[in-house]
Design a protein around this nucleic acid. Structure first.
Lengths: 206, 206
DNA sequence: GTCAAAACCGTACCGCAAGTACAGTTTCTG
DNA sequence: CAGAAACTGTACTTGCGGTACGGTTTTGAC
C-alpha cells in the first residue's frame, strides 16, 4: 500500500465515523483534515469534492459489510448441512457480533445517505440502491435453499421475507441509537430468527 | 388560529418536506422562507434558531403519527372483539394507508434526526427517544392483551416483538426510499402481520 | 545518486448559509 | 384608535465548501 492510499484510508475512516455520528452535511472537511493531520490542499488532492468522498466511503462500507456477511453465512453452512439450521446458526452468530460492538453499531451508511439524498449525485444513490438489491438477493438465495427442504407454513412471499432482514437491521440500528441502548439490535436479530424458525418449522413437530 | 400560528404551521410543513427529502443540514432557511413567502427576519421572529424549528417539527410529526395510530387501532378494536384479530385488522389497515400515500412515505423524522444527532440539542434528542418509547409501550400493551388470550408459540419476548413493529416500519421506509419502490413498506407491514399471526395462532388449528 | 512523479503545504480568494442586531412598517384585535 | 403582534429591510459576522495556483517534500524506479 503506497503512502497516498494509506492517507485515503485514514481520511475515509475518520469521515465515516463523523458522518455516522452527525450526518454528512454536518461533517466539515476542516475537522476531518484536522483529525487526519493534513491540509485542505491535501484533502482535495485525494478527493475532488465531498461527493467523491461519499462514493468512496460507501464502497468501503459495502465491501466491509459484504465480507462480514460472507464470513458469517459460510460459517453457518459449515456447522450444519440443513439450510434452515445453517441460517439460524448464522443469525445467532450475527447477533453475537452485533452485541460485541463496544459502543453499539455506529450506524448504517445506506440509511444515512437515504435521509440526505439531495446532497448526493446519482452515482452515489445508485450505489446504495444496488447494494440493497444485492443484500436482498443474497438473503433470497438463502431462503430458496431453505424452502426447497422445508415448506413454509402460511403463504409467505420469500422476496418480502428476504427484504425483512435488512429492514429489521436498519430499523433496529435506528432504535438502538435513538434510545442509546445497543442491545436492541441483537435482540431484533434474534426475534427475526424466531420468526424464520416458526415459518419454516413443520407444524406437527414441536 | 391567529395569523402568526398559521405562518408557523406553513413554515413547519415546508420545512418537514424539505428535511425529509434532503436532511436537516442541507435544508437552508433561505429556501424555506422563499417557499413560505416571508423574509429572514420573519422566520427568526417565529423560531429563535434552527434547533427550535427542529423541536416544533418533531412535536408536530409525533402528534400527527400518534393520531393516525390511535385511529387505526381503535378501528381494529371496533371490528373484532378478539385482540389478536383486532391487531391483525389494524395492521392490514395500516398497510393500506401506507400503500395509498401518493409518492410513498416521505420518511421518518425520528430516523432523520438519528442520523444527524450532533446537529440537535439534548431536548430534541430526548423528544425522539421518548416518542420511540411511547410507541413501543403502545404496541407492548396491545401484545399483552393478545397474550392474555392466545399463548404464543415459541418463547417470545413481548418487549422485543413490540419493538419489532417500529423497526420494521423504519427499516422499510429506508428501503422503499432507497430503492424508490413505495410498495416495500406495505409489504413489510404485511409480512410482520404474518409473523404475529404465526406466533399467536395455536399449532393445532390450521 | 538522480530525477520525475506523487503527495503534499500555504495562501488567497469566492459564494453561500446561519445567525445577529436593530430600526422601521404593516396588520390584526380589543 | 391604540397597542401588540407580525412582520420587512439592511447591514454585518462567522464558518464552510470549493477553486486556483505556485511551492515544497517524499517516494520509488533506474
Amino acid at each position: 500500500m503506497g503512502k497516498g492510499e494509506a492517507t485515503r484510508e485514514r481520511i475515509l475512516e475518520i469521515a465515516e465515523a463523523a458522518v455516522l455520528a452527525k450526518g454528512f452535511g454536518a461533517t466539515s472537511i476542516d475537522e476531518v483534515i484536522a483529525e487526519a493531520g493534513l491540509t485542505k490542499s491535501g484533502f482535495f488532492y485525494h478527493f475532488k469534492d465531498k461527493n467523491a468522498l461519499a462514493r468512496e466511503m460507501l464502497r468501503r462500507y459495502v465491501k466491509t459489510n459484504d465480507q462480514l456477511f460472507d464470513d458469517i453465512f459460510a460459517r453457518g453452512r459449515q456447522l450444519s448441512d440443513d439450510p434452515l439450521q445453517a441460517f439460524l446458526i448464522s443469525l445467532k452468530l450475527l447477533a453475537e457480533v452485533m452485541a460485541d460492538l463496544p459502543n453499539g453499531h455506529p450506524g448504517c451508511l445506506i440509511a444515512s445517505v437515504c435521509y440526505q439524498e439531495r446532497l448526493f449525485d446519482r452515482e452515489v444513490r445508485e450505489l446504495t440502491a444496488q447494494s440493497v438489491r444485492d443484500w436482498n438477493a443474497r438473503f433470497r438465495h438463502i431462503l430458496d435453499g431453505i424452502a426447497a427442504v422445508h415448506s413454509p407454513r402460511e403463504p409467505i412471499d420469500l422476496d418480502d421475507l428476504a427484504d425483512m432482514m435488512s429492514c429489521i437491521v436498519d430499523g433496529a440500528i435506528i432504535m438502538s441509537k435513538t434510545l442509546n441502548d445497543p442491545s436492541r439490535l441483537e435482540r431484533q436479530i434474534l426475534i427475526f430468527r424466531s420468526c424464520v424458525k416458526l415459518i419454516f418449522s413443520a407444524p406437527s413437530l414441536s
